[in-house]
């Protein structure tokens, strides 16, 4: 227990490492990786998403193939591809950018699916109306379709960002010092503090992800999308408990409305 308090007092090391005097590590590395890769991935995601909804086959099929292939490859193998294959082609890039590239490729495929779903959710009449007012196709997509689609896509983007943020912890395997690596380093350097290091790691991830999920719930409420947490389902009134409990005890346990 005293170890845990000691490690919690060491929070700066978990968050930024020895930053001003050394490399930036810890939780901020995860955040940087996630933010950079989601921004780069968003750009390519919109391109591939528009390509997937295109009526031109020579655009639709390659984009569909890209999205399907990347989505069905584990992120770890993508990381290894960019880690081992890029030097073979002749590109010498730092480890950090390898991670950024693989995460952005991964993110772009998933975001292309989100963008596609958003575009398909916009009614078809909107496009026809935009075209009939004399807009070009490019203008129609830019000014009419995408702004409406983005409003529908925003909650999915936030939840995907949450999952991507958690996925960034796998860069631990290729040796980038992120939150996971920080915790493992501390637990290896001081084996008697192994619980404390792991609990601190978990707390760091938990708090940041929980804040993100609260933010996404607020966003969904603001946009007027039904969220299941606040929605009082009808089935809750029907108790689904398997245990046979006598009724007087049950009355004590059940919260009455």
């Amino acid at each position: 227990m005293e170890f845990l308090i000691e490690q919690l007092g060491n929070w700066r090391y978990y968050l930024i490492g020895a930053y001003p005097n050394g490399p930036l590590t810890g939780l901020s590395m995860n955040i940087i990786l996630a933010v950079l890769s989601i921004v780069i991935g968003l750009f390519f995601g919109i391109l591939f998403g528009l390509g997937r909804t295109s009526c031109r086959r020579y655009l639709r099929y390659p984009c569909g193939l890209y999205v399907d292939v990347i989505r069905s490859t584990p992120l770890l193998l993508l990381l290894f591809w960019f880690y081992f294959f890029l030097p073979v082609v002749g590109a010498r890039i730092p480890l950090f950018w390898c991670a950024i590239i693989s995460l952005s490729v991964y993110a772009s495929a998933y975001q292309a699916e989100i963008v596609r779903a958003g575009i398909l959710a916009v009614p078809f009449g909107q496009m026809e109306a935009a075209l009939s007012t004399g807009m070009t196709r490019y203008q129609a997509v830019k000014l009419v379709i995408l702004p409406q689609a983005f409003k529908k896509m925003l909650p999915s983007f936030v939840s995907f960002f949450n999952s991507l943020y958690k996925s960034t912890s796998i860069v631990y395997i290729v040796g980038i010092v992120d939150m996971t690596r920080t915790g493992v380093i501390i637990s290896q350097r001081q084996p008697n503090r192994i619980y404390a290091a792991y609990i601190c790691m978990a707390i760091g991830f938990w708090i940041s992800c929980y804040l993100l999920s609260i933010a996404s719930q607020m966003l969904e409420k603001k946009l007027g999308i039904l969220d299941y947490e606040s929605y009082k389902p009808e089935i809750c009134r029907q108790d689904l408990v398997l245990l046979p409990i006598p009724k007087p005890i049950k009355r004590l346990l059940i919260t009455q409305k």
Binding site: I170, A202, W206, D239, L253, I254
Partner: peptide, 26 residues
Amino acid sequence: RTSRFKFLNLPARMYVETVRNIPGLF
């Protein structure tokens, strides 16, 4: 989680909230 009993509902919710906010690798 869909049960009305607090003592079934609460642990399940806590479990899900804990696990979903921590990466699988952890």
